[in-house]
Amino acid sequence: MRAVLGAGDTKLKVEQLSFYYGKNQALKDVSFEIPERRITAIIGPSGCGKSTLLRVFNRMYDLIPSARAGGKVLLDGEDVVTTRKLLELRQKVGMVFQRPSPFPMSIRDNVAFAPRLLGWSSSRVKEVVRQSLERAALWDEVNDRLEAPATSLSGGQQQRLAIARCLAVSPEVILMDEPCSALDPVATLKIEDLMAELMRDYTIVIVTHNMQQAARVSDYTAFMLMNPEGRYGELIEFAPTANLFNQPQDQRTEAYITGRFG
């Protein structure tokens, strides 16, 4: 648990956010502020809407035709929910998924893919490939085999490649949805170290099932729970991680972190 180094500026301001899959409400009245250049963890039992919340931040839910969001998510003051600059938003708010999904091409091309499609010059692409792999702590392991297929990497390496791929388009926020849940403890530790490194330049939001991980890596933690009557997810408590784990304000938070349910 890191000490919180003074309250930073707010990067994402979530205001009265509600979310529906068709008629089913998945989130209700979620409000909190995600600080800039900090790691914010979202924890809670399965099905409480953690992934749903994360996918609002980069409008990934647009792929689901019946999905609808109400309320606001302000990114540097601009509303994500209603923005028409979807592609800019997704460059600014990158995402790393549970499965690394390497593109079926070389390690280099995986990182260069988006920059090339965005029309960047080849010298800039080359620079970005190197920089991104270095920042994702993968360069030393792969610099002598950049042409090898990405599928030949180990699971942990593939996940760092996914992070490098995301860094290549210069995001400001990185969303991570259970990025370590398919990895062994050593690979997990590497990703956690990497996150601590990346926090200097990026705002990180991580969904995790692993409470120890949330406690280890995050500065702030949001605890969510499914409302038993309404069947929608709601935010129970949001606080600096140390406070949330040591002096939870809500009984339900305490019950969850002490393992009494969830």
Binding site: N58, L87, K92, L117
Partner: peptide
């Protein structure tokens, strides 16, 4: 999703 998340 990985492709779309890159802003493509």
């Amino acid at each position: 999703e990985s492709g779309l998340a890159l802003g493509l």
